[in-house]
């Protein structure tokens, strides 16, 4: 049975040419069908791959098309205007852009050092058997849907900050000349600082897992050489591992930044949705994504809708650039480490 089958399959392959010359035998029909199926499958996969490209261009084109009315009306001033008045249909993106950048900056300020230290812990300090468990637990933070962070932030984290961290900051740093204005005003609970902190938690797993992966890929010889010279563990990470993986770490940071910039639901809950630029990080503000989420379904009039879509376009362009840089850097480290 076994040999008979093997023979028949081999037959098909060998007698391919014979079948063609022999004319329309049943075997040739089968071969034709196979060849046809092969071509169909190949083109189907190719079409799907091109479909992914079309998807992205579709997103860009539809966003540009949707924002044409706003672009026509406000021109370049949209980016620099502070006004946001749906009644008089006067819109400017500056407060939203400002809020997006400030919250993401706070998030990165916290997530990057913490993520680096966790990666240091996971690659150098943690006992082998615990590594996978702790790494997975940190990555689970990335799996929690953003709306959960939102509801948790609004009901648990913001009241907690309002009662503890924020009064503390106001009473201490708030009186320091120079940076005092950063921490001025009443403790609202919600606001840009709270959003930044929640974003930090959400971005942490991305920074951590990429940093850990590139740390783990450093050739052991390099580290052993440094240990052999008498370096401490911290010195090895600081002077050997970090310089070697710098590009990869930066790529992970940019990837996290891309996430932070575009994050919507968690921020929508705790940002306060106030279209103004305040020097204090404790004040409510807004971000691009929170503005769209809060106002799009209630937007009346083409110009209002169009202004919101243009905000979406701006967000997409910013994250596209950040993510492209991230990919480029990760590609470079991949090539080097292999």
């Amino acid at each position: 049975m076994q040999t008979a089958r093997r023979q028949s399959v081999a037959d098909v392959a060998v007698s391919n040419r014979m079948a063609i010359s022999a004319g329309a035998t049943p075997r040739m029909k089968v071969l034709d069908r196979l060849r046809f199926g092969d071509a169909v499958f190949r083109h189907l996969t190719r079409a799907a791959a091109i479909g992914v490209l079309l998807l992205l261009s579709g997103v860009i084109i539809s966003l540009i098309q949707g924002s044409i009315p706003a672009i026509r009306t406000f021109g370049f001033g949209f980016l620099t205007s502070e006004r946001w008045n749906p009644v008089t249909e006067n819109f400017g993106a500056l407060p939203a852009i400002y809020g997006t950048i400030v919250t993401s900056f706070i998030a990165m300020l916290i997530a990057v050092p913490v993520g680096l230290m966790i990666a240091f812990f996971l690659t150098e300090l943690c006992p082998q058997w615990l590594r996978r468990a702790i790494g997975t637990a940190i990555e689970l933070l990335a799996g929690i849907p953003s709306i959960i962070y939102g509801i948790w932030g609004l009901f648990m984290f913001a009241p907690f900050l309002q009662a503890t961290l924020q009064p503390f900051l106001i009473n201490t740093l708030g009186n320091v000349p120079g940076i005092g204005s950063l921490f001025a005003g009443p403790p609202y609970g919600i606001g840009m600082l709270t959003s930044g902190l929640i974003l930090a938690i959400m971005v942490l797993p991305f920074v951590t897992s990429i940093t850990r992966d590139v740390f783990a890929a450093v050739p052991a010889v390099l580290k052993e050489a440094a240990y052999g010279l008498g370096c401490t563990r911290w010195e090895v990470v600081r002077n050997v591992v970090l310089p070697y993986t710098r590009v990869g770490v930066l790529g992970g940071v940019m990837l996290g930044l891309g996430r932070a910039l575009g994050e919507t639901m968690a921020v929508t809950f705790v940002i306060g949705n106030a279209h103004r630029i305040s020097a204090s990080v404790l004040a409510p503000g807004t971000t691009i994504s929170a503005t769209i989420a809060n106002e799009f379904t209630e937007a009346v009039g083409d110009l209002y809708t169009s202004a919101l879509i243009e905000l979406g376009l701006i967000l997409f362009v910013i994250t596209f650039i950040v993510l492209a840089i991230a990919r480029y850097m990760l590609l470079r480290i991949e090539r080097r480490i292999g």
Binding site: V52, L56, G58, S62, I292, L308, G312, L315, T319, L323
Partner: peptide, 28 residues
């Protein structure tokens, strides 16, 4: 070439802000 371009674009889509996808579907 096609694959490397798709790979790059796909990675961007992977982390693109999901609210923008909502706007896109609204538009189309």
């Amino acid at each position: 070439k096609l694959s490397s371009v798709v790979r790059f674009i796909n990675d961007i889509l992977l982390s693109a802000p999901s609210i923008v996808i909502g706007l896109f579907i609204y538009e189309v």
